[in-house]
Design a protein around this nucleic acid. Structure first.
Length: 495
RNA sequence: UCCUCAGUAGCUCAGCUGGUUAGAGCACCUGACUGUUAAUCAGGGGGUCCUUGGUUCGAGCCCAAGCUGGGGAGCCA
């Protein structure tokens, strides 16, 4: 070890400019006097030499710091514990040890923020995801969640880039909405009324005329209807915003607050819609593979170790990176609802009565187990199902010539289920009005929506992509609460 | 909301058929040792056995209700 020049204590100044650890590890700073700042991930101490690793979130890897205990004040040494925030200055040198290319030889260590080792909950060991979920304010400091949230950033950036490259305009649709006509689920109410003593109408109902918007309002469950208005003016738009569902859903695939991407395109028919969705998914997955290689590699290894714990039967055939690559290389299987029903009805699985819900008649909705069978057992790749029975789909989907089906399409992914739901929209005024009426939707409530069909209506299409479900597939995580920083679900809105 | 499994140290778990003072690994503290890297070795501290009620001479273990969490289903993205 080189002789240290000077050790400055907590009160001292930083010797050189701070450089992010991602850049320090690239190599061009080797030999230079530098300062790194970050949080201690691990430490190993002995009489003559003190090692610790520092991570600043800029990348997965941590920087190894070497310090001379004899040259470092006792008070500083004691405070270098896992979780503490430090500023370390010194010379960046080629590492003498194995396991890292460069290391920082500390001449100046400043404690920015202590972390009491008796109380700091993150240890340099594997924690269960369940435990980390309870400390969501700290879990981003782990390798796993650091990787997840760096990937999340790149993935959302890729989505904007995809649409931008194709001439789409990003439209901000409202988060507070009075529209309750979509039937997309229970809604969260937005009000400034005094809940203890709300104003009443003579009939005894709550008088929303006195509320902030002078009507009843909710958080949006979808930006689609407004998105369509944009598409019928700008041609191609997409939204990418928060979406709220007050459903009492307690599953690993649902959130009360999630992020959804909703493109809407004028002059697009159902097949154009499917092409776009498939292109988009492949584009962003390719982008992640190219821009998040280190983090994906880490998550892949992590998943592989998890797999080893499982019985052989339950292990997946492909690793994470293989799965992503596989999706890029193969066209999605496209088939109609009717064809899917035939495949399911004639399957060994159905004949041997292994489905909990046996496939009998045309017209019923597919259960999770059926979608799983098609995607994971029969085709073993992403599947696009289209032309569903009108009775089980929303009012705005375009009625086909057969009068029985609508131009809907769902994209099903292995392990996740429905990742995209979309349709060609009903652009014919009379048909749309009748469909709405038959589904019990009041004309007044969607008058503005109906009006677009009276003035220059055109064929158009769109879909919704659940961003967190895409995250599940790309990161290989299995619980949706682990791919959003601060998940909201029934009974939980902490952090 | 329904079905199902679980809750024991800061974390991950063991705890036999109900029987004396509830254990291990990691983490933490003390010491030793070493260019270490999930460091190693020795010692030490640390418990509302989820909560409440019940059965029993006796409950971490059995029963009931509740709370929290996991997995599955429904709703969907």
């Amino acid at each position: 070890m080189q002789p240290t020049e000077s050790i400055t204590t907590v009160e001292g100044t930083i010797a050189s400019k701070r450089i992010e650890i991602r850049d320090l590890l690239q190599g061009q700073h080797t030999g230079a006097q530098v300062t790194a700042m970050g949080w201690v991930r691990n430490k190993r101490e002995s009489k003559n030499v003190f090692f610790f690793t520092l991570n600043d979130g800029s990348c997965l890897q941590a920087l190894q710091v070497v310090a001379d205990p004899a040259q470092t004040p006792e008070e500083v040494l004691r405070k270098i514990s896992v979780g503490a925030a430090l500023a370390v200055s010194g010379q960046l040198v080629a590492s003498q040890g194995k396991g890292q290319s460069v290391e920082l030889q500390a001449t100046d260590i400043r404690i920015l923020g202590e972390a009491d080792p008796e109380k700091y909950p993150l240890q340099p060991k594997k924690h269960s995801l369940e435990f980390l979920r309870e400390i969501a304010h700290l879990r981003m400091r782990t390798n796993t969640f650091g990787a997840i949230f760096r990937i999340r950033h790149h993935l959302q950036f890729a989505i904007h880039q995809f649409f931008n490259e194709r001439g789409f305009f990003n439209l901000h649709t409202p988060i507070i909405t009075a529209s309750d006509a979509e039937g997309a689920g229970e809604m969260f109410q937005v009000t400034t009324l005094d809940l203890k003593n709300p104003p009443r109408t003579p009939e005894g109902e709550i008088d929303y005329k006195q509320d902030f918007f002078e009507r009843s309002t909710n958080l949006t469950v979808s930006g689609q209807l407004e998105g369509e208005l944009g598409a019928l003016a700008l041609g191609k738009i997409y939204t990418f915003g928060p979406t709220f569902r007050a459903e009492n859903s307690n599953t690993s695939r649902h959130l009360a607050e999630f992020w959804m991407i909703e493109p809407e395109m004028a002059f697009y028919e159902l097949e154009d819609n499917m092409d776009l969705a498939e292109d988009m998914l492949k584009y962003v997955i390719r982008y992640a593979l190219e821009h998040c290689a280190e983090d994906l590699e880490f998550l892949a290894q992590r998943a592989e170790e998890e797999e080893k714990q499982k019985p052989q039967q339950e292990r997946s055939e492909m690793g994470l990176l293989q799965r992503l690559q596989f999706v890029l290389e193969h066209p999605f299987e496209r088939l109609s609802y009717t064809e899917a029903i035939e495949i399911l009805r004639n399957s060994q699985h159905n004949r041997k009565k292994k489905f909990q819900y046996l496939i009998e008649a045309w017209g019923t909705d597919l259960q999770s187990e059926h979608e799983r069978y098609l995607v994971e057992k029969h085709f073993k790749k992403p599947v696009i199902l289209y032309n569903y029975p009108a009775a089980i789909k929303s009012f705005y989907m375009r009625l086909n010539e057969d009068g029985k089906t609508v131009g809907a399409m769902d994209i099903l992914f292995p392990g996740i289920g429905e990742i995209v739901g979309g349709s060609q929209r009903e652009e014919r005024y009379q048909e749309l009005k009748e469909r709405a009426k038959s589904m019990g939707i009041e004309e007044e409530a969607i008058a503005w929506y109906l009006e677009t069909r009276q003035f220059g209506t055109v064929p158009h299409s769109g879909f919704g992509l659940g961003f967190e479900r895409l995250m599940l597939f790309v990161t290989g995580m299995t619980n949706i609460r682990d791919v959003i920083a601060f998940p909201r679900f029934p009974g939980s809105a902490e952090f």
